[in-house]
């Protein structure tokens, strides 16, 4: 009785393309599932020649790397697409960007080379705007947080409510004054499990120093990548870009 899909197996993957994209403005309220669905429709509209999985309900082969949480904007989200037909990354970037709603913007595309994307990302740099919080208040709270060795917070995760340490993941926390009524917090956070997000850091600031912003903070992820010793992050697409550059150089020579 077991029916099988008729016809030949799906065409093989001939190329993998890595994209960097941004989640901006009101689209920061998209959850990861919303982003994934919107991407799949955008890929169809842009007629990107995706490779598909086999079976009765074939799925386009898309690999996501850790997504910014609902409500957080990002300038640095990453995804890898498997294609059944080769395509110029710049063309793919332009076509897909045009097919996605404004606010979900493709800002870079490279042909994948060498190591996996996930291996090149172990930290994020965030900037968090805190409307209604004065800079000295934030500075005091951050100093207090950094003085601790362990700060436990609790949050609902997809595996239920969990308690975890925030402090160990924080590599860097710097305060600035945006204006009189809005402080700005810059963070570099190591990726741990569960991932420590800006809202966890804010919860921790509440725990250690009673900081409770009256207006919801606005976090934006600025970068993801491999943490260097000096606290900066290495661009995860740089190795692919270099390889592609070499290839291009060779063929034109």
């Amino acid at each position: 009785m077991a029916r099988r899909p008729e016809g030949p197996p799906p065409p093989p993957v001939v190329q993998r393309v890595r994209l960097r994209f941004a989640k901006r403005g009101r689209l920061r309220f998209l959850s990861h599932r919303d982003v994934a669905r919107t991407f799949e429709r955008g890929l169809r509209r842009a007629a990107v020649p995706m490779a598909y999985s086999a079976g009765f309900s074939p799925h386009p082969r898309i690999s996501w790397v850790g997504a910014a949480p609902t409500g957080a904007a990002s300038e640095a989200e990453y995804v890898e697409l498997a294609l059944a037909v080769e395509m110029e990354p710049a063309q793919l970037q332009a076509d897909l960007d045009a097919a996605l709603p404004p606010g979900l913007d493709v800002v870079g595309a490279v042909v994948a080379e060498g190591t996996g994307l996930a291996e090149r990302i172990d930290a994020s740099r965030w900037v968090v705007r805190l409307p209604g919080v004065a800079e000295p208040e934030l500075r005091g709270a951050v100093t207090e947080l950094l003085r601790q060795e362990v700060v436990q917070v609790e949050r609902a995760t997809k595996d239920g409510r969990r308690r975890f340490d925030v402090r160990a993941a924080i590599v860097l926390a710097v305060c600035r004054a945006g204006n009189d009524t809005c402080a700005i917090l810059e963070l570099v956070v190591r990726h741990t499990t569960p991932a420590v997000r800006p809202d966890d850091v804010l919860t921790a600031l509440g725990v250690v120093a009673g900081l409770r912003p009256s207006v919801p903070p606005e976090p934006t992820r600025l970068e993801q990548g491999r943490l260097r010793d000096d606290g900066t992050l290495a661009d995860p697409l740089a190795p692919d870009r270099n390889d592609a550059g070499r290839l291009a150089g060779r063929s034109s020579a």
Binding site: R26, L27, F29, L30, S31, D34, R41, T70, G71, P101, P102, G103, P131, V215, P216
Partner: peptide, 19 residues
């Protein structure tokens, strides 16, 4: 409206911007 949205369930339903 925007500052209220992080405080509600599934805020994306209120932002518009559909295809």
């Amino acid at each position: 409206l925007e500052p209220l949205l992080p405080r509600v369930r599934r805020p994306v339903q209120y932002v518009g911007g559909e295809g």
